[in-house]
Amino acid sequence: MRKLIVSTQVSMDSVIENPQNWVFDYVNDEFFKYASDQLFAADMLIMGRVTYEGFAEAWPARAGADAFADRMNSLPKYVASRTWKGPLTWNANLIQEDVVKEVAMLKDGSGGSILQYGSGELTRTLLQHGLIDEFRMMVYPVAVGMGLRIFENIEQTPMKLLETKTFRTGVVILHYQPANK
C-alpha cells in the first residue's frame, strides 16, 4: 500500500495561497534538502485542476535547471477534474470520474509515496474517504493577512503528530496523520 502525502507551505495565519509572496526570505539548504528528499521519495503526483494548470505551465520551463525540476517534470501525474476537456500535457493523466475509487486503486500497489502539493477540494474529498495518510505542513514565521487557507471547508479532524523539526530560519516542519487512518 502506497502512502498518500499532502504537503503544504503555510503561513502563521493558515494561508496557503501565493506562497511566492512570503516564502523566499526563508529558503535555505535545510529547506532544499527537505523538499528534495520528499519529492524523490515519491513516484507519482496527484493534484486538482487549478494546481495542474499552474504547474504544467511553470515547471516545463525549468527543465534542466536542477534535479528537482527534472524530477517534477518526469514523474507521472494524475489530475482530478470533472470539467477538463482535451488532452493533458506534462506527463499527466486525467481522473474524471470517481476520484475516490481511482485514488484508492493508485494507492493499492507497491512503490514510493504519492504526493499532493497544496490543499483544496481534492484534499477534502480524499480526507473524507480516509485516503490521506499524512499532512505535512511547512509553517513559515509570518502572518500574511489574506488568501485561501489550508483545511478550508474541512470539518473537525483530529490528527496524530508524527514528526516535527525546526529549520534555522524559523520554519517549522510538522507531519500529522489524520485520525481516520
Binding site: 502563521m12 495565519d13 514565521p141 509570518v142 502572518a143 500574511v144 493577512g145 489574506m146 525546526t166 524559523g170 517549522v172
Partner: peptide, 12 residues
C-alpha cells in the same frame, strides 16, 4: 488568532 489584512513577520 491573526486579523485579516495585516502582515506580521515573526521570529521563532
Amino acid at each position: 488568532l491573526f486579523p485579516d489584512g495585516k502582515r506580521v513577520n515573526l521570529k521563532l
